[in-house]
Design a protein around this nucleic acid. Sequence first.
DNA 1: CCCTGTTTAGCGTCGA
DNA 2: TCGACGCTAAACAGGG
Length: 320
Amino acid sequence: MPRPGRNTYSDQKPPYSYISLTAMAIQSSPEKMLPLSEIYKFIMDRFPYYRENTQRWQNSLRHNLSFNDCFIKIPRRPDQPGKGSFWALHPSCGDMFENGSFLRRRKRFKVLKSEHLAPSKPADAAQYLQQQAKLRLSALAATGTHLPQMSTYNLGVSQPSSFKHPFAIENIIAREYKMPGGLAFSTMQPVPAAYPLPNQLTTVGSSIGTGWPHVYGSGVIDTATPISMAGGEYGAYGVPIKPLCHGGQTLPAIPVPIKPTPAAVPALPALPAPIPTILSNSPPSLSPTSSQTATSQSSPATPSETLTSPAPALHSVAVH
DNA sequence: CCCTGTTTAGCGTCGA
DNA sequence: TCGACGCTAAACAGGG
């Protein structure tokens, strides 16, 4: 199979499904939620391949957002003009890619139908979620807790502030992005968070999310290309082959899913559920399974089994 | 009008 | 072989 050039994959389809690409984009944002346009932007900035045929893949991507329960829609606040809603990852979509392949999930993520804890009606669900979020936020504020970059969902969960979600920008793109010491995100953020957190942290990922410098174009990527992880040079994009979405129970900041799913409020209530930590800490031993470069199709080039993640996210409903 | 979002359908690939 | 999953196309509705 053709091995993509060293510096560019512009003509090669990245070894990631739209679901994983979308998840990456969402997770790269400080708020853990992005409007559709920003998701497009993220993907196009990062993967030259997707700068073409936009009509095609964007349609597919939209399809995925609507079709997959792992994505939840978060409405804009009235004072936030703009088109479309924000999209976030469902709290329990954690181990979708546990098998290490980002082309094919082991199971499709589906929201649990009989979530006894959750309200039955969508409307109630949204309200419920909002309440939950409020509670957590206020609790957080009260304790002066430093929001560990992730989300309020991590609250209650014994999680060290150093926790880094697999989708965390650190894991995803940190490789080639040398964040200029805590670049403030605020000023460059084109789209205000739907539900800004009190402590909108500005750690690493901050500068990336939406207004991040065109890293790719800036040469950071093409020149770097240092990583040789499974799948080969895709590391150049800084896309973590492994750490991506696995067990992380991260969440969009204060999501208020408006998905028309009847019982669309699964995991949230179960917040205090322990998360299969590990992942984040999983040694960066992205074993260079090298062998073959992922060519989108055919072989997912299962990039490494290194991320031994014993516990298959329990509460994540990988029903299907 | 364009973008966003939903839904349906068909086809190819992969894994059990 | 079959079911699940992913990709693509397309139609349609609603909103800015």
